[in-house]
Amino acid sequence: MELETPIFELPFLELPEATTAELVLAAQEGDNEAFGTLVNRFERMVQAVCWQRLRNHAEAQEASQEVFIKAFEKLEQLQEPAAFPGWIRSIAVRQSINRSARRPPATSVEPHSLEGFDGEAEAPLTSMLNRERIDQLNEGLDRLATLDRSTLVAFYIHGQSLVQMSDEFAAPVGTIKRRLHVARKRLAKELECLQAV
């Protein structure tokens, strides 16, 4: 009878020094201590994301706990272990949005509070969803190589023309077009990883 050799030799794994990907793989194999180490490693980041959206310490704490419960339940669905930081962050954003959407708005109905209201402001949920998209886009850009990121930022954010970019990057316009095409594909791939919740 041939014994299966485990892919992951846990007794030799020093959890605090393990990479995030190693911890995710161990947790997916049922190692609760590895998941606990992931919680310790990312707890402050998750709480900061929740606080940023909720602006209430108690609610941010509760939302953080919900994030890690959801992450524990869905960990098997994470196909790219190294993507755990972005994955857990996107869960935190969604949990915070859900929690803030459930609580009643704290708005005044005094007549003076309606002065200057033009009726064209974004709905709170729309605003939060737009903010989430911007956060994910920024996170995706941060994960790109410097050349890809600077190419996309120059064209889409700074509004530079292909000719201006050609001068700035000291490259022919055809090369700039190719870089934009490749950088867009790489960004799309990063955003897919971030949205794998």
Score class of each variant (00 low, 15 high):
residue 123 A to Q: 15
residue 25 L to R: 15
residue 4 E to D: 02
residue 79 Q to C: 04
residue 86 G to I: 06
residue 16 P to T: 06
residue 119 G to R: 10
residue 145 A to T: 13
residue 137 L to S: 07
residue 24 V to K: 08
residue 169 F to Q: 05
residue 46 V to K: 08
residue 81 P to F: 07
residue 103 R to L: 08
residue 95 Q to T: 15
residue 24 V to E: 06
residue 27 A to D: 04
residue 132 E to C: 05
residue 17 E to T: 09
residue 69 I to M: 12
residue 166 S to V: 06
residue 79 Q to T: 13
residue 43 E to R: 13
residue 100 S to Q: 07
residue 97 I to K: 09
residue 96 S to N: 07
residue 17 E to Y: 00
residue 32 N to P: 07
residue 98 N to Y: 13
residue 142 D to T: 12
residue 146 T to P: 00
residue 142 D to I: 11
residue 7 I to Y: 03
residue 12 F to L: 04
residue 120 E to Q: 10
residue 68 F to S: 04
residue 154 A to E: 03
residue 165 M to D: 08
residue 151 T to R: 04
residue 7 I to S: 14
residue 132 E to F: 14
residue 124 P to C: 07
residue 18 A to Q: 11
residue 53 R to T: 05
residue 196 A to L: 01
residue 74 K to C: 14
residue 6 P to R: 03
residue 130 N to F: 00
residue 3 L to Q: 11
residue 119 G to L: 05
residue 45 M to L: 06
residue 176 I to W: 02
residue 124 P to S: 11
residue 187 L to G: 10
residue 27 A to P: 14
residue 123 A to K: 15
residue 84 F to P: 09
residue 55 R to Y: 01
residue 84 F to C: 12
residue 108 S to L: 14
residue 39 V to M: 02
residue 82 A to L: 06
residue 67 V to Y: 03
residue 146 T to R: 05
residue 180 L to H: 09
residue 74 K to G: 13
residue 122 E to R: 09
residue 39 V to P: 04
residue 177 K to H: 15
residue 116 G to H: 11
residue 7 I to P: 10
residue 85 P to A: 14
residue 84 F to K: 08
residue 47 Q to C: 09
residue 134 I to D: 01
residue 157 I to R: 05
residue 76 E to F: 01
residue 35 F to S: 15
residue 46 V to Q: 07
residue 40 N to A: 14
residue 109 V to L: 11
residue 29 E to Y: 02
residue 77 Q to H: 09
residue 72 F to W: 15
residue 99 R to V: 13
residue 131 R to K: 05
residue 71 A to L: 03
residue 177 K to Y: 10
residue 192 E to G: 02
residue 36 G to N: 02
